[in-house]
């Protein structure tokens, strides 16, 4: 408590150089709003909700691919619930479901494998989105399907990796609030390398106290004027990370270019299944035609994710776009910046 109190005072009364810090984890975004942290900060500290929610960065073309599989190929789509309402270029998966597609919400990729095993007549596709934190469980699902000899299970990948995003977004902020869960897997070397390149950051945990402490340390280091890196979440994040999980992902997946919704393609910022596992890669298995097309919208999710605007500066925010009728992905997921801003009153 005393730690958080000092951190709180420091952040409230901070009078150093202007400081723009970007959180790149949806859980951080959600918790920062839920705890009312923005209201505590000195006006010299600006928090930017960066591209850290897997749903928010999932491109329109990915939803179109999933809709194609569901409607044209008759696949059963299994997915985390948040993705169901993300708008594609013509419809969301909820829309596809209303047209008769089979879309099932699961709570774990292994549940999708279980579903495939008990429904051998259906082609089951799991939508594999997320960052380093969740990719190991996606790989586990493929491994399980292989071991069980299932030929009706595959995954549609849009898995992202953070280092590419850090580099691409580095200029949008003075420092990153690195996501604790990601670095629990990947370790701290990436952050140290970023620091060498002049990109600062702190690894933060997820409680109110942990967030305040990490923010206060970052602000203090920033005021000292040199690039910095501090692991403020050492009880969970070890320097070496979780090598077993990294090795397993590496065995099944290879780096690839990835499209981030609203930002564009960031080279080598994603992973996909290696060629020898093509039978489990829905994109190859069903030879999905290229779904990338011109997509015009007034939604400014991309600018929100890059910290160029705050959600209420988007012309659609709270009007055409709200949690009941989301236009942009940032409004769909409760971890999205627009949804959190809307629900918790970002300007309170």
């Amino acid at each position: 408590m005393s730690d958080s109190f000092d951190a709180r005072n420091y952040l409230e009364n901070y009078d150093g150089p202007d400081f723009r810090i970007m959180e790149v984890c949806g859980t951080h975004t959600h918790e920062i709003f839920r705890q009312g942290i923005r209201r505590i900060l000195s006006p010299k500290i600006k928090l930017i909700s960066g591209p850290g929610c897997p749903v928010c960065v999932t491109p329109v073309s990915f939803i179109d691919e999933a809709v194609y599989l569901a409607l044209e190929k008759g696949c059963t789509i299994t997915t985390f619930g948040d993705l169901v309402r993300v708008p594609g270029s013509s419809m969301s998966l909820a829309g596809a479901r209303a047209k008769g597609a089979s879309v099932k919400v699961v709570y774990s990729p292994l549940d999708a494998v279980k579903y495939a095993a008990s429904n051998p007549d259906e082609q089951v596709v799991f939508l594999s989105v997320g960052f380093e934190t969740t990719t190991p469980s996606d790989v586990m699902a493929v491994k399980k399907a292989m071991t069980d000899g299932l030929d009706n299970f595959s995954i549609l990948t849009a898995n992202k990796t953070m280092p590419g995003a850090y580099e691409a977004m580095g200029k949008s902020c003075d420092a990153f609030l690195y996501p604790g869960h990601v670095h629990a897997i990947t370790g701290t070397q990436i952050c140290k390398d970023m620091c060498e390149k002049g990109v600062s950051g702190v690894i933060a945990g997820f409680t109110g106290d942990e967030l305040l402490t990490a923010l206060a340390i970052a602000a203090k280091k920033h005021s000292e004027g040199k690039p910095f890196f501090v692991n403020c979440y050492p009880r969970v994040v070890k320097d070496e990370g979780a090598p077993a999980a990294v090795a397993m992902v590496d065995k099944f997946m290879q780096p690839c270019d990835a499209e981030w919704r609203g930002i564009g393609v960031i080279p080598m910022s994603g992973v996909e299944l290696r060629d020898e596992y093509a039978a489990y890669d829905a994109r190859k298995k069903f030879a999905i035609p290229d779904q990338k097309k011109e997509y015009k919208t007034a939604c400014r999710c991309g600018d929100v994710l890059q910290g160029k605007i705050i959600p209420k500066e988007c012309p659609l925010f709270g009007k055409a776009c709200n949690p009941d009728h989301p236009v942009g992905a940032c409004m769909v997921s409760s971890e999205g910046a627009c949804s959190a801003f809307f629900m918790y009153g970002g300007d309170l």
């Binding site: 839920r34 705890q35 009941d324 918790y344």
Partner: peptide, 20 residues
């Protein structure tokens, strides 16, 4: 018309509006 929550760390936030 709003429910405001004071949080454990001294922040303030709206209780999200009831949803589905």
């Amino acid at each position: 018309g709003r429910v405001v929550m004071t949080t454990g760390i001294g922040g303030m936030t709206y209780l999200p509006q009831p949803g589905n």
